Simulated assay, not measured.
Amino acid sequence: MSKPEDSGLERDYCAGLLSNRKLAEKYGISEGAIRKRAIKNNWVRAEKSGTQKSTQVRKTGTQKKAVRTTEEKAPRVKKNPPVAVEEIPEKSEEKNSLPPELSGLSQQQLIFAEHAGTGKTRVEAYRLAGYICTGNTAYAAASQLYRNIKVAKAVRYFRDKHQQRYSAEIDEVIHQLVSITRADPNDLSQHRRVNCRYCWGEHHLFQWRDIAEFDKASAAAAKDGKKEPEYGGLGFLDTTDPNPDCPKCSGEGSGHVFIPDTRDLDGDARWLYGGVKQTKFGIEVQSLSQEAARRDLIRLLEIRASRKNGDPVVGDEPHEDADLTDEQLHEALEELGYGRRKNQLEEKLDDS
C-alpha cells in the first residue's frame, strides 16, 4: 500500500471536513495511524463556527497519553451588572423600659428589685446588686431597701413580669384537678345488671340470639344424643334490662362489665382516665385518685392565696420566710406531681 502524502492528509485532517474513518478509507491507512501522525506533527483539526477545540499532548517519559480535547464555547456577552440597591436598615426594637412611676431608682436598686422579683431572697438580691454589708447588717439593710416605696413597686413589677410564664401552668393544673374531682367513674367502666336468657323469652324459656345460634346448639345436642334444646324465641340482646317477673333470676338479671372506647372519652372523664392494663384476669381500667386530687387542689389554692398576699407591705417588718418565690411554687407543683416536667400530665395537656 502506498504511503499517503503527508501534505494531502494533513490538509484534509486540519480542514475537519472528513472524519478519521473517511480519511482512513481515502488514504488507505488505519485510523490509529492517522491519530498517531496527528499527534506527532501537532495537527490541529478545525471546528465548526461557534466553538473551538484545542488538542493537547501530554507525555510522561516514553509513555504517550491519549489526546484530551477541551471544547471552549464562544464567549458570552456580558450583561450589565445589577444595580446595587441600598438596603434600608431595619428599625431596632426599642428596649423595654420601666414604667414612669418606677423612674428615679439607681442602677443598684433596679438590680436588687429585679433579683427580688424573680425569686431571690432579699439578702441574695442585696449582694447581687453589689452592696457591701454582710451578716445581720446585710439583712437589715436589705429589709430597709425592700421597704422603700419605689423599690417595693419595682419588685412587684418584676415579679408580675416573671410570673407570667407560671400563671398558665397554674391555671391548667387547677382546671385538671377540678375536672378529676368532679368526673364520674361510670364514664370509664361500668358494672351493669342486664337481662338473663330467660327474662324475655317466650314463656320464660331460653331465648336465642338468632336462628344460626339455635341450629348450632341443636346439632351439638343431636351429636351427643341429647334432646333438642328448649326454644324461647329469637332476638336476645345483652344490654336489655332484666325482667322483674323472670322466674329464673327473680328480676336480678346477670352481671356484665362494660368498658367504653377510651379514644372517645371527653370532658372530665378524659382527665380521670389513667390508662388500661392487661392482666391475666382481663383488662383493668386505671384512673387517677379523686381523693388525692382534692387534697392537691386544696393545697394548690392555699399556695396561690399565699402568693397573692406575699407582696411587700411598706412599713411592716418583713420576714425572710414569709414570701413564696416562683421557684418554691414550681417545686410545690412538682411535689404534687403536676409540674411541667412530669411526663404524664405534660402529654395530657399536649393532647388537649
Rank of each mutant, 00 (worst) to 15 (best):
V285W: 06
K227C: 00
A125N: 01
K248F: 02
K216Y: 00
E327M: 07
L128V: 04
A219D: 15
G16A: 06
P81G: 05
Y273W: 14
D296S: 12
T279S: 11
R299S: 08
E202M: 04
L105N: 09
R35M: 07
E31R: 15
E93R: 15
Q52S: 15
G310K: 08
L105G: 10
A322R: 13
L98Q: 08
D187Y: 03
N41H: 14
W200N: 06
S250G: 12
K161S: 13
R307P: 01
K248S: 08
S49M: 07
K40S: 06
H162R: 12
Q290I: 02
L272P: 00
V57L: 13
T70G: 07
F214R: 06
L9V: 14
P185V: 03
I170C: 05
S54R: 12
C196P: 15
Q108N: 15
I149T: 10
R197P: 01
A38L: 13
V173Y: 06
D210V: 12
E302C: 01
H162V: 05
I132Q: 11
V285H: 09
Q190F: 02
D171G: 10
T239C: 03
I211S: 12
I111D: 02
Q163W: 14
T118N: 10
H204W: 10
L300G: 04
E230I: 03
D224P: 02
R127F: 00
A183R: 11
L288C: 01
A15N: 10
A220S: 09
K79N: 14
N96I: 14
Y13H: 05
E10F: 11
L288Y: 15
A168E: 12
F236G: 00
G274D: 13
R156H: 04
G282H: 15
K161L: 12
G233Y: 03
S254M: 15
T69Y: 04
F112Q: 05
S7Q: 15
H330M: 10
N41G: 00
W271R: 10
D238P: 04
H203Q: 12
V85M: 05
K120Q: 10
A74Q: 14
L301F: 11
E213P: 00
A15R: 15
S287I: 06
K78E: 14
R156I: 14
A138S: 13
G61Q: 05
T69G: 02
H203Y: 04
G235F: 05
P89M: 07
L23N: 02
L349P: 00
I259L: 00
R307N: 03
L297A: 01
K95D: 03
E327T: 13
D238H: 07
K342A: 03
G235D: 10
L188P: 00
G8L: 13
R21I: 07
K161A: 10
K73Q: 12
Q176I: 09
K53C: 09
F214T: 02
I211Q: 15
I283D: 02
